[in-house]
């Protein structure tokens, strides 16, 4: 087996709204794949279909070579799914939650396993504390520990590091990479660019449609974005502000974003962009610099473009 997830034409509607639209995606075994997209783009819905929590309205696919439609029960034994919202028992203690998961999966040497897991989490002293009394970040850590307790072959994580501090976030990602090195496949949804860059590959979804897939470099390159960074000589903020306002309206400029004292300006059509910025390039108060687009530039550009398509009457609205 070298693909962990292979789905095609996956579609989910809620009422008249198509939330996931003919999604086709493959995730190679042993890889960490980042799942990105704006709020409400259908990430959680896709993950739920993959683990059998939602039935797709159309399309089919496999998870770990098991059919997502008719072998959901078998899939559930082999995957770990961490929900976006904390969904363990707040009225059970930390240890009792882990104990419950271990019992359900019928794990051998349960007591020891729970103890070791608590130790690794650094929660041994607080084992009797109710899960509901934990801080947000600690809840996330507990949920992750509970999801990997039964050593699943595929891990689906829905924004696992939301609200987790940087140190714990780094530890979390090291942990994920260790697990992947042991052969576990991970599909992880996130809104953080730095996390996306830690993944072997990323998939970008907007309005239910998969817009880009591949390594970070591939995705950046395939966007075909030309970008410039503009700085001012001296502290001429005023000029930068007028420039921003002017460029936002200019045709050929798809992207204007401020980064501190600098401005990112980008466009998909290189010649149109050059034409748009031509009058400003001679301004002595501004320093123009050819630049590589960042992943964030690409995403914001993708998001804006798909929004236009979605809003257009010719868009593929149901």
């Amino acid at each position: 087996m070298n693909t962990a997830i292979a789905v095609s034409g996956l579609t989910k509607r809620f009422g008249s709204k198509t939330v996931v639209d003919r999604l086709t995606m493959t995730v190679p075994a042993g890889q960490i794949v980042g799942f990105l997209g704006p709020n409400g783009s259908g990430k959680t819905t896709t993950l739920r279909m993959l683990c059998g929590l939602l039935t797709p309205d159309a399309g089919n696919g496999t998870c770990l070579d098991l059919d997502i439609r008719c072998q959901a029960a078998e899939i559930k034994r082999q995957i770990g799914y961490m929900t976006q919202k904390f969904s363990f028992y707040e009225d059970l203690s930390i240890a009792e939650n882990l104990d419950f998961v271990a019992r359900v999966h019928g794990l051998p040497d349960r007591r020891n396993l729970v103890m070791v897991t608590l130790d690794r989490l650094g929660l041994s002293e607080r084992r009797t504390q109710l899960a509901g009394e934990l801080s947000g970040g600690w809840k996330q850590r507990l949920a992750l520990a509970a999801c990997i307790l039964h050593r699943p072959r595929l891990l689906l994580l829905d924004e696992p590091t939301a609200g987790v501090d940087p140190k714990a976030r780094r530890a979390f990602w090291e942990n994920i990479h260790d697990l992947a090195a042991d052969g576990m496949t991970v599909l992880v949804s996130t809104h953080y660019m730095d996390e996306a860059e830690r993944c072997h590959a990323i998939a970008y979804i907007a309005y239910g449609q998969l817009l880009a897939q591949g390594t970070v470099q591939d995705v950046i390159a395939s966007a075909g974005l030309t970008t410039f960074t503009v700085r001012t000589t001296g502290d001429n903020h005023h000029t930068l502000n007028t420039l921003t306002t002017a460029l936002r309206k200019a045709p050929g400029v798809d992207l204007v974003a401020a980064f501190g004292a600098a401005l990112h300006v980008g466009g998909a059509d290189r010649s149109a962009l050059l034409a748009a910025i031509a009058p400003w390039r001679t301004d002595p108060a501004l320093i123009w610099q050819d630049d590589q687009p960042t992943l964030e530039d690409v995403f914001i550009h993708l998001m804006a473009r798909s929004q236009d398509q979605y809003a257009a009457p010719t868009g593929n609205r149901p």
């Binding site: 683990c51 059998g52 929590l53 029960a73 559930k76 034994r77 995957i79 799914y81 929900t83 919202k85 904390f86 969904s87 363990f88 028992y89 707040e90 998961v101 359900v104 999966h105």
Partner: peptide, 12 residues
């Protein structure tokens, strides 16, 4: 409480 999601994703 949202715990049904955990319950359903477990092999019960």
């Amino acid at each position: 409480r949202g715990t049904l999601e955990t319950l359903l994703v477990m092999p019960l």
